[in-house]
């Protein structure tokens, strides 16, 4: 157990770092989407548009905080906080580099790190569901319902594909899982599992092509239609920080975590996470949105059986070999 002040410093540092990464992830997403569409993206604020996140932040802070007259005021205010808190809390158990001696990079190191992480991530849907419910609008409610159903169906396949990695690594501690990939990253041994996991995390974070909960063409803004100002910003932060969490998780589980030649571990980890985040943006620039019934049948009829089969084969190979 570390000293409480060290934990405090680490926690504050982590939150600030995540906010900063969120701000620039958003900028880079807009930039890169622009590049994909042969545009420049935001380039008016500061050199190369690098001050855009701060301009956005100032704008959002000064926006009026609107609460609909029919909304459930307490839950309406609470819901974005739940979303953001859950997204931030999830990163607590993710280490970014191997522990050297008494110093640990991560904040917490529970034995069942991965299970705790999945449990925290599952809570994230409460923020969305409650926010959509408390806004008392038809679009918000539909968005929230979709989000809940989607999260539940894709979480199953995601967890199922994870078990393959757990069997190979023989542990649920993220440090051990990364250590088990010292020579070969699990994406080589588990290509199907990695693909299923990738699809599921895109669906879990409500990103295109699975961004039905906020499908603006049919649901205005989905669950955050009624939100404005800082509360809206909180939902956005939650979405993007969830992206970072999921990208880190994918890096740790399938891409070999911080293992890599020459460069220090932290840099390798950051590079891999950045590559996965770029993939998120790339997918968004490429694929059209799913139809809702197809989303559901894809999750239940394709991904879940495939994940189960993958698990079965992995288990059989591990036992027989």
């Amino acid at each position: 157990m570390e000293a409480w002040w060290l934990l405090l410093v680490k926690s504050v540092g982590l939150v600030l770092l995540l906010f900063l990464i969120f701000a620039y992830l958003m900028l880079f997403e807009r930039k890169f989407l622009g590049f994909f569409q042969l545009r420049h993206g935001p380039n008016r604020t500061g050199p190369w548009g690098l001050l855009q996140p701060f301009a956005d932040a100032v704008k959002l802070v000064f926006k009026e905080d609107i609460i609909p007259a029919s909304a459930d005021r307490l839950i309406y205010r609470l819901a974005p906080m739940i979303s953001l808190f859950v997204a931030l809390a999830a990163y607590v158990v993710i280490p970014v580099a191997p522990s050297s001696g008494s110093f640990r990079w991560g904040i917490a190191d529970p034995n069942a790190g991965l299970l705790l992480l999945l449990a925290i991530l599952s809570l994230g849907v409460y923020g969305i569901a409650l926010g959509g419910w408390a806004s008392q609008g038809k679009y918000t409610l539909l968005g929230a319902l979709r989000s809940t159903a989607q999260a539940i169906s894709y979480e199953l396949a995601m967890a199922m594909s994870l078990v393959g990695v757990l069997i190979l690594a023989g542990s649920v501690r993220l440090d051990d899982i990364v250590a088990a990939q010292a020579r070969v990253p699990f994406i080589v041994l588990q290509p199907v599992g990695a693909l299923i996991f990738l699809i599921c995390i895109v669906a879990e974070t409500n990103r295109a092509p699975f961004d039905l909960p906020e499908g603006e063409t049919e649901l205005v803004g989905g669950y955050h239609t009624e939100y404005s100002g800082l509360r809206f910003a909180m939902y956005y932060m939650a979405e993007y920080i969830n992206m970072i969490v999921m990208a880190s998780l994918l890096t740790h589980l399938y891409l070999g975590g911080w293992h890599g030649p020459l460069l220090p571990p932290v840099v390798w980890f950051a590079l891999k996470v950045a590559a996965v985040l770029f993939l998120f943006i790339w997918l968004r620039a490429t694929l059209p949105r799913f139809r809702y019934d197809r989303l559901m049948s894809f999750g239940w009829k394709v991904l879940l059986p495939l994940a189960a089969l993958n698990l079965l084969v992995t288990a059989a190979v591990v036992v027989l070999a």
Partner: peptide, 13 residues
């Protein structure tokens, strides 16, 4: 889409 990513931009600044 990746090919487009590296293409010159058509927007006139």
């Amino acid at each position: 889409t990746l090919k487009n990513f590296f293409r010159p931009k058509v927007t006139i600044a």
